[in-house]
Amino acid sequence: MKDETYATKKWVVPYKNIVAMYDGEGYVDIVEQTNCFGGACWARYHYERTSPLIVSVRNVGNTMRYLTRVGKEELNLTPSIAAAGIEAVEVGDDTISITYAGLGGGGVGATISRALAEDVIDYDHSEIGGSRSSKGTIVLPKRKRVLIGVDDTDTKEEGATWSLIHNIASDLNGKNAYYISHALVQLYPVPFKTQNCVSTVVEFACLDESKLMRDFEALLRKYTLSEETGMVALTKFDAEALREYGKLVKSKQISKETAEKAAVNAEADILMNGRGIIGALASLPYFANPMDSVIL
């Protein structure tokens, strides 16, 4: 008799984690953290070609991020060129359900591999393997994006904002708030900079944003080395309202009063109101874009 447990282990590569964030208006950001980057790249190629629900896909670190519309679209699966995809994205009161479909090995990857990911709370799938097609639905908690920007935590003698913020975010990573991206944001080198004039933005997929912000602020106040630390938070799906402000802070020195007005206009929360809010706020539109954020 075949050892099914052994067979499953040998033929399935589980995703480490999958989180889904809803914008409240019909779009979902699905962030898949992979244990096999080659498999994730294969999926991206086929999903983009196959799935009408997908608006865009991009790779950030070891994650693939699928921005999708909410809805259902039957897929025209074709071996080798369009072998798998996302068929449905459905949003409930507290959950988001995603249905994947695929042929052959693509069916295995599109079902069981994702069903074993960390944030999955329920799943269902058809028979998988061989040349047959298969489908699988995973159910995830409905999460909200939370962006936290920080600047001015160090001195000329010690400290580095980007590393402190990464370590705080890592400490808070968990079921309530998954830490999913980090970016260093190069700013205009003002006279009062400590060294390189860089702020930091971190992104979380969150259930209780109030708890995350309280916990983050408490740790930042405990470990910062500066009296001018700035910490801001944004609980919106994107930070486009701050795009021009971010470009401005990359191009010249501005006042703290200008930053405070921009925060009000963007509905961002100022949690630590030192001079660092200028750079902290400017970091927000560069979340999950670490290759471009480092460019002055």
Rank of each mutant, 00 (worst) to 15 (best):
E4L: 14
T5H: 11
Y6N: 11
Y6G: 04
Y6H: 13
T8S: 13
T8D: 12
K10Q: 15
K10F: 10
V13T: 14
V13F: 12
N17I: 05
I18A: 08
I18Y: 09
D29A: 13
E32F: 09
G38H: 14
H46K: 07
H46W: 10
H46I: 11
R49V: 03
S51C: 14
P52C: 11
P52F: 08
P52R: 07
S56V: 09
M64T: 09
T68D: 07
T68G: 10
L75T: 09
N76Y: 05
L77Q: 05
P79M: 05
A84R: 12
E87S: 14
V89Y: 04
E90S: 14
E90T: 14
G92P: 01
D94I: 12
G102R: 10
L103R: 05
G107V: 07
G109T: 08
T111Q: 11
R114S: 10
A117K: 08
E118I: 07
V120N: 09
Y123N: 12
Y123D: 12
S126P: 06
K135A: 11
K135T: 15
I138N: 02
V139P: 02
L140N: 04
K142R: 14
K142E: 04
R145Y: 01
V146Q: 00
I148A: 01
I148R: 00
D151L: 01
D151C: 00
E158R: 13
G159P: 04
A160D: 12
S170Q: 14
D171Y: 10
K175Q: 12
N176F: 04
Y178D: 09
Q186I: 05
P189Y: 09
V190I: 14
P191W: 09
T194Q: 11
S199P: 05
T200M: 04
A205H: 04
D208S: 07
D215N: 14
D215T: 05
E217P: 03
E217G: 10
A218H: 07
L219M: 13
L219Y: 02
L220I: 07
T229I: 07
T229N: 03
V232E: 01
K236L: 09
L242E: 05
L242P: 04
K247N: 12
V249N: 05
V249D: 01
K252F: 08
S255H: 08
E257C: 01
T258H: 08
A263V: 02
M272A: 03
G279F: 01
L281N: 02
P285T: 06
P285I: 04
P285V: 07
Y286H: 10
Y286L: 08
M291D: 14
M291A: 15
